[in-house]
Design a protein around this nucleic acid. Sequence first.
DNA 1: TAACTACTCATCCTAAAGGGTGATTTTCAG
DNA 2: CTGAAAATCACCCTTTAGGATGAGTAGTTA
Lengths: 143, 143
Amino acid sequence: MRKSILIYGISVAVLIGIMKWLEYRYVVKSLPVEAYLGLIAVICTGLGIWMGLKYMQRKELTTISPQVVPAIPPTISYLDLGISEREFEVLQLMAKGLSNQEIADQLYISIHTVKTHASNLYQKLDVKRRTQALQKAQELQII
Amino acid sequence: MRKSILIYGISVAVLIGIMKWLEYRYVVKSLPVEAYLGLIAVICTGLGIWMGLKYMQRKELTTISPQVVPAIPPTISYLDLGISEREFEVLQLMAKGLSNQEIADQLYISIHTVKTHASNLYQKLDVKRRTQALQKAQELQII
DNA sequence: TAACTACTCATCCTAAAGGGTGATTTTCAG
DNA sequence: CTGAAAATCACCCTTTAGGATGAGTAGTTA
């Protein structure tokens, strides 16, 4: 969170710098002020979209809560294997046949993170490949 | 999607209106230009956040739930899909999590042949990846 | 506050998978 | 016997997956 504030502050600072520079340009070249306002608008809109997705979107995730487990079958949970929630999400998307990039897009994280989750997943499932992980997960009835 | 574009267009229009109004205020009252730019920045940032949350929400998964599947299992054969015997063998070994090389060793053929079978398999299953093929094969209950 | 866990992102490198094309041999039905 | 389908193998190229490693952030708990 501290970093978020820092980044936002820096962004604003940069923005002010740009504004000052634009003001100078305005005085010198007398371009229409709408151009600068429009530029600011575009930049801030993009920044807002980025911030919104980055720091607010996570709260609205419909996370698959571990409490909602099947009632009757007392099969083991993914938690019993030390698999975290996020890793389990990745596993579920893997089972749908998605590539790492597609999983990344789906979860709004980078492909690097997906790979990290996948690697941890393979270790915890004691497998070496994606298809093995899926086979084992089905065998363990955790998906 | 059309609605998104429409709303975005309206937003931009409103924004331009605000800008014009601000320009007028600027001329009349001669307040520092930074104030208006800052206001634009704030407004656009908020708009961006709203847009980001509203229209770039996490994509909903097109879950192929087993409940939707007909109650009476269709139980089609792999032959109905034009999948040959050898291709089906490869598919079964894929489902076990074997790599192409391991499948080749298992069937006493070269890895090139396995890849060929795999490619034909993907075409006949109308998929693009190994994991997709496995998902679809399970969905069709042919493995 | 310190420790711990989960999550995130990154780079470098290797291995595996996949697309496209072409070719030869086997098998089998017409 | 002949043509079609199946099976086999190969090469080139691009994309994807995976391993190893390092690092930063957020939240929780001792």
